[in-house]
């Protein structure tokens, strides 16, 4: 057993003619919270989908527990995914099922456990995210933060060894953000899992991550502990961490000369 539960090796991926990732290398050690950060459209979520085997890389490979993800057949892929839990950006709760049934869904589908045991497990998972009392509610009755917590309870329903979070803090109020932040760290430690967080929220991510990768222009632009990255003098990292308007990532999208364009007759 390698010390890294997920390894990304010389990975390239692109849509049509545009290459999104160009030879990316990353490792995710067991038991750690590792963040992947970068601007919008830098391919962070795509990296999660590559780890989950939802898309195949153009070049290179992703290994989960030493097994190459894209070489798995359907059964092998599902076997790998049973070790993973994923929290989607907007929760992706099944809208026709109650909170209880949402959390029970993976347990019912993938295990042959009796209903009485499923009930106990679901209530335990909901209790862990503080929503045991909301188990009869339907998804439209939940606030954004509550929906995210239910989705988190569902992601950890089968005690996965890898938990992936796609923008877990996006669109949340400060209280919910703090709650989710706390939950990610505490659940990771309690379950002995490895967490992979994709986010662009610097403050919250740095608060809980053990290690951070910065992705820009399809490559790993910087990596290190949050402490190292705060003090980094690399222009991109500095711009990102301090939220500066202009820098290596320009404010303006590439465009022809402003004055010339205004003077042009329609």
């Amino acid at each position: 057993m390698t010390s890294h539960i997920v390894e990304i090796d010389d990975l390239s991926f692109g849509y049509k003619n545009k290459l999104l990732h160009k030879g990316i290398n990353m490792v995710f050690p067991r038991g750690k919270v590792v963040a992947i950060m970068g601007g919008s459209g830098s391919g962070k979520t795509t990296l999660l989908r590559l780890i989950g085997g939802q898309i195949k890389p153009t070049k290179g490979e992703v290994r989960v527990n030493g097994e190459v993800v894209h070489q798995q057949d359907r059964n092998g892929m599902f076997k790998l995914r049973r070790q993973m839990g994923m929290l989607f950006q907007h929760g992706a709760l099944f809208t026709d099922l109650s909170v209880f049934d949402n959390v029970a869904f993976p347990i019912r589908e993938l295990t042959g456990l009796p209903e009485s045991m499923i009930r106990d497990l679901v209530l335990m998972k909901l209790n862990a995210v503080g929503l045991r009392g909301a188990h009869t509610l339907m998804p439209p009755e939940l606030s954004g933060g509550m929906a995210r917590r239910v989705a988190l309870a569902r992601a950890i329903a089968l005690d996965p060894s890898i938990i992936m979070y796609d923008e877990p803090f996006a669109g949340l109020d400060p209280i919910s953000m703090g709650v989710i932040c706390d939950l990610i760290r505490s659940l990771n430690d309690a379950l002995g899992a490895t967490s992979i967080i994709v986010s662009h929220d610097v403050k919250e991510t740095f608060q809980i991550a053990d290690y951070v990768y910065f992705v820009a222009n399809g490559e790993v632009a910087a990596e290190g502990s949050p402490h190292d990255l705060i003090q980094s003098t690399l222009p991109f990292v500095h711009q990102f961490v301090h939220g500066e308007k202009d820098g290596p990532v320009p404010f303006h999208y590439t465009a022809p000369d402003y004055q010339q364009e205004l003077m042009q007759r329609g």
Partner: peptide, 21 residues
């Protein structure tokens, strides 16, 4: 809408085949 709200992707990531379910 299940596709747009990533419910089908979520099912796939739970190792549940959306076609059979």
């Amino acid at each position: 809408l299940m596709k747009a709200t990533e419910q089908l992707s979520a099912m796939e990531m739970m190792a549940v085949n959306p076609i059979s379910r």
